[in-house]
Amino acid sequence: MVFDFHRGRRLRRTAVIRDIVRETSLSPADLMMPYFVVETDDQNFKKPISSMPGQFQLSLKQLELQVREAVENGLKSLILFGIPAEKDPVGSQAYAEEGIVQQAVKMIKGIWPDLVVCTDVCLCEFTSHGHCGLIKDGRILNDPTLDLLARTALSHAKAGADIVAPSDMMDGRVAAIRELLDESGFEELPIMSYAVKYASAYYGPFREAAESSPQFGDRKTYQMDPANAREGLREASADVIEGADILMVKPAGPYQDVIRMVRDSFDLPVAAYQVSGEYSMIKAAGINGWIDEKAVVLESLIGLKRAGADLILTYFTEDVLKYMGNK
């Protein structure tokens, strides 16, 4: 007997059959939740982020309460962004021993020692000008910034961070951080590099959340042109050589081709950041009833896993943990 067509529907006939042949899955270990922690004396401070419904700026106490609920729902890892009480041209609170991120790391690790705490290493939330590097005559200086980034990473390590994640896109920052960490006895601390980070229009809501909008110009001299993919492989290769342990692509959804290229080119774990604009668009459509929010969220994350992401940073993490608990 000769069969003249393929019966793919045989493996789609029931929900259980579809489950057992499913190629890609999503688990709590795949998701990292971003949090915005604010330096404030008001421990009841919990400010909604207007452009990111369901997300907040949090005091240390409110961060503790938020993380506690998420851990109870299965949270495995998080990343911290800090908003200091005062900013200056050199972002000194980024690497202050008792800076807000450092305080948050100590608090979280003291309560949940097994929870993976990652820290964003950058200056933009801490500088008065909002750029990720030092400024001179209107130029963002690369090499003088590296020492401050390394000092920031070291201060996070000393506070107890499990992973440091440089997001600045200064050339050579992974090497500078790796060298200082190793010299200081933190040779086993991983670096998750924002290796392929684009100058994206999808970051708008984040800049409200982190209060990090540049006060002049833009970030196109150090973040990547969205039109370029091969350049991303050069950036990732440089970070591998400098000592990165995890490579991140940011944003995620519009750059799934780049995620796949990085996955196929390197044997390190690959992270993808589903950024604020991606979150806000799905949220807005869900709130307006235009889409099934839960279904679209899960489909978007499976798409990132299928593209090659091992770890996804997403503001939907808390929601997805609840979905998984309600199966």
Rank of each mutant, 00 (worst) to 15 (best):
M1H: 03
R7G: 15
R9T: 11
I17P: 02
R18A: 15
I20P: 11
E23P: 00
T24M: 05
A29T: 02
D30G: 15
Y35G: 06
V38C: 12
N44G: 08
F45T: 00
P48M: 14
I49S: 07
I49N: 05
S50N: 05
P53F: 06
P53T: 01
S59N: 03
Q62V: 07
E69R: 10
V71G: 02
E72P: 12
E72C: 02
N73G: 00
G74Y: 09
K76G: 07
K76S: 10
S77Q: 12
A85Q: 10
V90Y: 12
G91S: 11
Y95I: 07
E98L: 14
E98C: 07
E98K: 13
I100Q: 12
Q103S: 01
K109A: 01
D114H: 06
V116M: 03
D120G: 08
V121M: 11
V121P: 10
C122A: 12
E125L: 06
F126K: 08
F126P: 03
S128E: 11
H129Y: 07
C132Q: 10
G133A: 15
I135P: 01
G138F: 14
I140L: 09
N142W: 14
P144C: 13
P144I: 10
T145M: 14
L146C: 03
L148K: 12
L148V: 14
A150L: 10
R151N: 12
L154H: 11
S155N: 04
S155G: 10
K158P: 04
D162S: 09
D162M: 11
M170N: 06
G172I: 09
A175C: 15
I177S: 01
R178D: 12
L180I: 10
L180Y: 08
L181K: 07
G185R: 04
Y194M: 00
S200L: 05
P205K: 08
E208P: 09
E208C: 05
S213E: 06
Q215T: 04
D218L: 05
T221E: 12
M224Q: 13
P226H: 14
A227K: 08
N228H: 05
A229C: 06
S237R: 02
D239V: 03
D239Q: 01
D239H: 03
I241P: 09
G243N: 05
D245H: 14
I246R: 06
M248T: 06
A252V: 03
P254C: 08
R260M: 07
F266P: 08
D267Q: 14
P269A: 14
A272R: 00
A272H: 02
Y273M: 06
Q274P: 07
I282S: 05
A285M: 15
G286I: 02
G289M: 08
G289R: 08
D292K: 04
D292S: 09
K294P: 04
A295H: 03
V297D: 08
E299S: 12
E299P: 03
S300L: 02
G303M: 15
L304Q: 01
L311Q: 03
I312W: 01
I312G: 01
T314V: 10
F316L: 03
T317M: 00
K327T: 04
